[in-house]
């Protein structure tokens, strides 16, 4: 399997003495949808900054598709696109000009640049806004514009730093759909996000970074399997009978209201066992959801452990 990005012993100490990265190592395979999680100040943006060459590293190495970013500057830069956390385009330029200019920086001839510009602005729902000055766009549109700009040279690796921060739910869902589509088409994606639900929904592999160190680097399923217990909110089709007692080993419950039960299961107990037990008691379930995001529980436990 080809490695899209390989980070080895990467360290960064800022001029004020702050040690943002303490020798992290990380590999992301080609075609992966990879989440880099961590609290504010953990080192996520510094890592992306070093990859994109906006931050000078103190030591270590970064390779993109087998080529060192220090020695193969031009080849590696052609291979990745960056969507930064903060808006970083001119507020006075038109939407189309921003994307076309970026295409020019990558040496794309004008005809190809125009085609790509239209393709990605349409895909991201910005084509109608192409003549608009970028400062007039909403926050969500600005983020989509940065994605279109990062894709115009069609990189093999797309790195997104908190792309959905401050974006409404509907738009976030449409961005997830778009990112999944380009990932399915072969683009490797690395995502940092504060929305753990987003990472759980989109990503296959995950690294958790805290205080400049990788505290976990694993497959998302394996990580979620580490959960000791999960709490479900179950909506019942009829009111729960008074005096109802739910007795099942490795579980506990509470009645939230007459049509809602909260059940916590642990010790390998399956949710099917819960359904079977409830069915035996004559209770039908209409809907079910996790009380808290599963990844969030794990994320917090990893950080506490660190």
């Amino acid at each position: 399997m080809t490695i899209a990005i390989s980070i080895k012993n990467l360290a960064k100490t800022y001029a004020n003495g702050f040690e943002a990265l303490k020798g992290i190592s990380l590999e992301v395979e080609q075609g992966d949808f990879f989440a880099l999680l961590g609290p504010n100040g953990a080192g996520k943006s510094t890592t992306i900054g070093v990859i994109s060459t906006l931050v000078n590293k103190t030591s270590g190495s970064v390779e993109v598709f087998g080529k060192n970013v220090d020695t193969h500057v031009f080849e590696t830069k052609l291979d990745f696109g960056i969507v930064p956390q903060e808006v970083n385009f001119s507020q006075f330029e038109k939407v189309q000009d921003i994307v076309m200019t970026q295409a020019g920086y990558y040496g794309l001839p004008r005809r190809i640049a125009r085609e790509r510009c239209e393709k990605y602005l349409r895909k991201l729902g910005l084509w109608e806004k192409r003549g608009e000055r970028s400062r007039n766009l909403s926050g969500g549109m600005k983020r989509r514009l940065m994605i279109a700009r990062a894709l115009v040279h069609e990189p093999r690796l797309l790195i997104l730093d908190e792309p959905t921060a401050g974006v409404d739910i509907e738009l976030r869902r449409s961005m997830w759909k778009f990112l999944t589509e380009i990932n399915n088409n072969g683009t490797t994606i690395i995502l940092t996000t504060h929305y753990l639900e987003e990472a759980e929904h989109l990503c296959r592999n995950i690294a958790i970074i805290d205080e400049g160190e990788i505290v976990e680097n694993t497959n998302m399923r394996k990580l979620l399997a580490e959960l000791d217990s999960q709490t479900y909110i179950l909506e019942t089709s009829a009111p729960v009978p008074k005096g109802f007692v739910f007795s099942l080993q490795n579980s506990s419950h509470s009645i939230v209201d007459e049509n809602c039960i909260e059940v916590t299961v642990s010790g390998g107990l399956s949710i099917n066992d819960v359904f079977a037990k409830l069915s035996d008691s004559g209770i039908k379930i209409d809907s079910m959801r996790n009380k808290t995001n599963r990844l969030e529980q794990l994320f917090l436990s990893k950080l506490e452990g660190n």
């Binding site: 060459t53 500057v73 930064p84 970083n88 385009f89 970026q102 990558y106 040496g107």
Partner: peptide
């Protein structure tokens, strides 16, 4: 917006 140029090749 200078970052557009700096991350490019």
């Amino acid at each position: 917006s200078i970052e557009e140029l700096l991350v490019s090749p």
